[in-house]
Amino acid sequence: MEIEELVKRFKEYVAEKIPEAEAIEIGFVNPIFGGASRQTYSIELRYVKKGKPVSERVILRREFESGIIETTVDTEFKAYRAFYGTDVPVPRVMWIEKDSTWLGTPFYVMEEIVGCEDKQMLFTVPPFDEVRDRVGEAFFRIMAAIATTNPADVGLEETLEAVTPEACWKRELDYWEADADKNELEPHPVFRAAVRWLRRNPPPPAQKIVIVHGDMRAGNFLFNRKGEIRGILDWEMMHMGDPLEDLAWSMNRLWSWSEPEKAGFMIPREKGVRIWEEASGFKADPDALFWWELFSSVKGIAIWISMNKVYADGTNTDPIVGYGGIWAADLQRRIILNQMKEIS
């Protein structure tokens, strides 16, 4: 959808959502570059309410006609709503719209958290490197807070499908293997060898079934120059599962390619694990964690395969999808090969 059309339709939508608003104007619409799962826009909303001018910066997240990952905005919206006001910082959500007639696909709107950054590579250079330790420590504590949140306490018990401690690893592995089966454009023999190893060597049952963010990593949160994390983002893959799943995903070396011993370019992996263990009360058994780290590579490759597929079949030809899929697949292949060399 062209920006002009989006602005027109979004103004109409706001008018319906805030009937008392007058003189609704859109100050700016800036597409936020980089998202492969949603179209995201930063929007300045201006209107007059009860005679007073109001100016708000909001984020609009719209589903792609063809997404890389098969998720709906509903999961994200519910996650933000659930965690708002808890120890897990998230932006305040405003509206969700499942009716595609407004903007072509379902979308939701939330407040924009300003004055923050999200790219983890900033931790490698001044002046942002000054806060990397503080952000890293906060990140692992927040991850622990997610894992120790009772779904019933935040209204998520009906949203997330139940799974047993014994079966959670298999459910995730089955899902991502099937995803790769569906989208693979060419054979991926190392990926297949990793899947076989994971099945032959299952992890121990989860210590407890917890809320798993599903994409908990550097790059998916907003931090400021004080070293504070202001918002955990990108909840579209949230589900119930093993607490080690998020921990392992956060340490996928893809997120810190040139500094592999630092989790997300922030703090040493061992330190991150220690903070998470202390804050959550869970244990990160090294063998079980390795299983989930190898799984993270499998899941990563499945996602990059999907990116390559949607680009190749023409359903999403954004250059970020085209190049991103090639770039990430290259690095993830090297990572998974090294992991397999450790055990074969």
Partner: peptide
């Protein structure tokens, strides 16, 4: 910004 990034990525795709 988006156009700049997309053109840069398109150049990288050509490089690949």
């Amino acid at each position: 910004e988006k156009a700049k990034a997309e053109l840069g990525l398109s150049a990288l795709l050509i490089g690949v």
